[in-house]
Design a protein around this nucleic acid. Structure first.
Lengths: 233, 233
DNA sequence: TGACATAATATGTATATACATAATAACGTC
DNA sequence: GACGTTATTATGTATATACATATTATGTCA
């Protein structure tokens, strides 16, 4: 068919994706230029361009000026996942959200934390710990260090009605982040807070957020081993 | 300034991103229409449209016809990570790559696997197990089930020179995937293969890949707890 | 008042055209 | 033949225009 009643860039994109998937256009192969494709599909070059650009963004095509467009050699695909707000994450899953503040005070940052944030070792930072609950059961233990130079106004926040997570999301935007996922074992402290056995496996997410040149916060989020992080492509 | 020597959609996008970040346009607020913005920025509506669409794709704006464009209420940001080929992942980190095939035979799929792939319970599938090594040390234990209906030609592959991971990447494209990350504890079998203590924490990635309506493969990739998955935003 | 048709409107997309830019290919010089 | 300059070319972007589509707002009639 391709008897395009309406030739949209969506249809064109889909058709090209099909050709790539079915190896009509083999990995590494140079595909026809925009001009040629626009004639083939009976549409404007701009339309083909949009379809090609979107496919390139998705990583299945590699485009270079003058050199042309080719099918990505290593279809190393990209997946996306959202950086959620814990409360939303819990509520989306149908749980009733609560959080409990465990501690909130200014302390000298330990080396490991200061280093991760690119700050000097003994720096005074706000150290906040809390646990997020879903239906009364511990869901995530949040251990957070906040750079007071970046968000001085947080000093007066008691976190009685709002969690540090949400406070920062609504008061302090960030433009860069580094996120690390890994597995670990629960220490005595974490086990107690999360209500799991000591030495149980835990799922750990660590995140440092920045605005250019200025670290805002480092957070370590620890989930019981039952936690699943799911994403679709 | 905004004394746009050249008013590109990049510049406009950046300026709008700034306004959102600095709360000039507050979360949830309705921002001016494309027409108005195009006048303000002194460019065509199409240019504004492109900038707005990209921001909307990134999740910081929410657009609805007739209703207009508003700043996302919950700036739930998206991060991306690549779905790597193990060999590349290891080599990028500077390790010498090897893999060892542990088993390769047709078996009846257990319920848990069949279910995940949306196939009937006792189905015959190719079950391949192997371990990927970095500098001789176990890096990932790969336990994979392959739907022979989707890739019949894999039946004759011995996997002596190429790992199932790479074979599939180069021979069988997929268009959809579901990926799950979680932490677990090493059973006797896994502990032995990965060279870690039994009950140690492990980082597990499970992935099911599809082409529309047809599952291709289900793979469970198990890493020692020293593994870190890193991504930047 | 409520149901339903209709108008108004912001975004979504397609098109032709023009020019910008990056990278290769061709060319000429030494 | 090595090297730098120029021409060529495919993609990248901007623009004006036109029409499509989804959704809200409005108005009409029972």
């Amino acid at each position: 068919m391709t008897a395009t009643a309406r030739k949209s860039f969506h249809a064109i994109k889909a058709e090209m994706a099909r050709r790539i998937a079915e190896r009509v256009w083999a990995p590494g192969a140079l595909i026809p230029g925009e001009e040629v494709l626009s004639i083939e599909f009976g549409c404007a070059r701009a339309t083909v361009n949009r379809a090609l650009q979107e496919l390139a963004r998705g990583g299945v095509l590699v485009r270079k000026r003058k050199a042309g467009t080719r099918v990505a050699l290593h279809p190393m695909r990209e997946a996306r996942f959202v950086i959620p707000i814990v409360r939303q994450e819990i509520e989306t899953k149908g749980g009733a959200y609560q959080f409990r503040l465990l501690s909130n005070r200014v302390e000298k940052a330990p080396t490991s934390v200061a280093q991760r944030m690119g700050l000097s070792k003994g720096k005074e930072m706000l150290h906040v710990q809390c646990v997020h609950l879903s239906n009364g059961k511990p869901y995530q233990y949040e251990d957070r260090w906040i750079n007071l130079d970046a968000v001085p106004s947080i000093r007066n926040e008691t976190f009685e009605t709002i969690s540090p997570n949400e406070w920062l999301v609504t008061h302090s935007p960030f433009s860069q982040a580094e996120i690390v996922f890994h597995a670990g074992v629960a220490g005595t402290h974490e086990a107690e807070i999360l209500g799991v056995a000591e030495k149980d496996a835990v799922f750990i997410i660590e995140r440092v957020t920045f605005v250019p040149q200025k670290p805002i916060t480092f957070v370590r989020m620890i989930h019981p081993s039952s936690h699943r992080m799911v994403t679709q492509l």
